[in-house]
Design a protein around this nucleic acid. Structure first.
Lengths: 338, 338
DNA sequence: ATGAAAGCGCTAACAG
DNA sequence: CTGTTAGCGCTTTCAT
């Protein structure tokens, strides 16, 4: 069996309470006994029992992060950055995957809540409307929640994200000003958080130039992943009126579209341009470096962790923290002037 | 305060023990009370307290996974795959990062052990020798540990990995047979697990052809990451006897080398070829698709989870499970015949 | 400065 | 089938 505090106390002939105080470096113990206890702990290989401590203190010094998945480098970089910041704050990060399911997201949230995490960060799933069960869970949650990268429209919450509308607008405007006209926008289902704002940006860029936008030029995907973008683009390129440019909702999809362009024997960007969103590291090393909109992940991580810690330290309910930071257009070879 | 079992018991006028049995769907409760309890639980919004349960049962239905980081897509894909399998086995995955530090790896292992995880999977850090403290921790661990992707040489353990030597051998042989002679191998520090075997493969390919190998052609890197490979390659290409091919220990480094080649104004693979190891998804969409050695991550995940579950179910100590699976050479444009 | 004792929420014998 | 009781290992008043 593992060494417990009781073992230590017995071994040293002192009380368990004193051992606890000594080990946690609290006041009320003489330096001598403190040292004695700590030495004994080391030599007997004592390590605190996570459950016992959690049960007694009702807290875990842990922050929960929920992301849809971690294969998309945007999420892995976000995860990585957040982990470092959380660790630096003296807490542990515990990671959960929602797997793009709102229900799973809620399950994980509840699991985290039962672990008495200090706070929860969630990067939302690509869904249009939350369920009332979900909203109830969030509303009645005792632990602070902050959304990162996007948020849900149908209830108020704290969030940190880039201004997706702006990013999308400037990207679209960039293409239009470069002479592209027949642009296809590969986005998510209507109302999906990260799609909707970007779609507005897309539309306004057209509107501002007084150009009309064929509605068919907005194609909705379910999974916002490499494969689906690849498939959709392949089909697209077989149509009679091929697009001259393709914009996607994230870089991974852009890379998928790019692959499809190549496999269709077309030149990029001569025959068709491609642009993405996120600026994940692989975008710069793609066969044709990708024009995209940078989400400053590091900064988003920093702001969201800071905000969450703030929400945690303020005991009382307060108005939500809502931060939108400016994205940055990154021009590369995948969208040269026509 | 959150609803507890005591609340439920009081509310229903029955004992806490019965509530526990009912909620856990155990035998010894009448269907009627069981239903009653479960309904009450739902309506009062009861959720079990993770700590209390963990403390009482001494188990957590959790598996711990430790990876160095998650930005390298090899690790993120591994993490993703393992998570799905673990979830399918009815347990939770808890993830920890070693951040390439053996000490951190050990800390996380101990944290997991204190959480009474059912088992631990670890993808080792790039280090030559483990410390005796580390080995002690592993040896005395009550919870089964399995290494994934590599293992440590200096003590016996269970592991699942690809045959790195074979992979490296066939990759090198491929280059030699294509006419490349001045090959540089970017590997890790001497004795580092994932480097050593690959170095042996590299050397034997030369040996088999009776070619001698200038020792200078093996360059040791500390961080096996994009940036370092980039820097090292840049310098390399300024030397008088430029290499005609560069092999790296993983794909991320290969992509870094590739970028350096491009920025040096050289043609790839005409002036210098590049090959990697892992076959992460981005290797196929790189500016020049990368020749590499595929590690079947899915299969490794499956085998390692299966093996771990097996170690868990067998109460008694048994001889370690050690699986080496065959890697597969993937030829792409980054290493065309000279 | 130290110890005694209660309790965190749940499970697991053991009685009844 | 249900209730009683005793912990799991730690923290935390409150005495001493």
């Amino acid at each position: 069996m593992k060494t417990t505090m009781a073992d230590l106390a017995k071994h040293l002939g002192i009380s368990e309470a004193t051992v606890s105080l000594a080990l946690n470096d609290k006041a009320g113990v003489s330096p001598r006994t403190k040292k004695k206890v700590q030495d004994a702990a080391k030599s007997l290989g004592y390590t605190p029992n996570f459950f016992a401590r959690g049960l007694a203190t009702q807290k875990s010094s842990t922050i929960g992060l929920i992301v849809p998945e971690v294969e998309n480098p945007f999420y892995s970089k976000l995860t990585q950055s957040i982990e470092e910041l959380v660790r630096a704050s003296g807490r542990h990060l515990i990671l959960g995957f929602s797997d793009f399911s709102l229900e799973t997201e809620q399950e994980v949230m509840e699991r985290f809540a039962n672990m008495n995490v200090d706070g929860i960060m969630v990067s939302p799933v690509y869904i249009r409307d939350t369920t009332s069960a979900y909203r109830d869970a969030v509303r009645t949650s005792k632990v602070p929640i902050i959304y990162v990268g996007a948020y849900y429209y149908d209830f108020p919450s704290s969030f940190v994200m880039t201004n997706l509308m702006d990013g999308s607008f400037s990207l679209t405007e960039h293409l239009l000003s470069n002479g592209y006209r027949n642009i296809v926008f590969l986005c998510g289902q209507e109302g999906v958080v990260i799609s909707k704002e970007r779609e507005i940006g897309f539309r306004s860029a057209y509107a501002q130039r007084g150009l009309s936008l064929e509605t068919a030029r907005i194609i909705r995907c379910d999974k916002l992943r490499f494969e689906e973008a690849f498939e959709v683009t392949k089909k697209l390129l077989l149509e009679e009126t091929k697009p001259d440019a393709i914009i996607t909702v994230n870089d991974i999809m852009a890379l998928g579209a790019m692959r499809a362009v190549r496999e269709s024997g077309l030149q990029l960007p001569k025959d068709v341009a491609v642009a993405g969103y996120d600026d994940v590291i692989f975008s710069s090393i793609a066969e044709v470096p990708l024009t995209t909109v940078r989400q400053p992940v590091q900064e988003m991580a920093q702001l969201s962790v800071d905000s969450l810690l703030q929400l945690i330290s303020e005991d009382e309910a307060r108005s939500p923290i809502q931060l939108k930071i400016s994205p940055q257009l990154v021009l590369r070879q995948s969208t040269l002037p026509i």
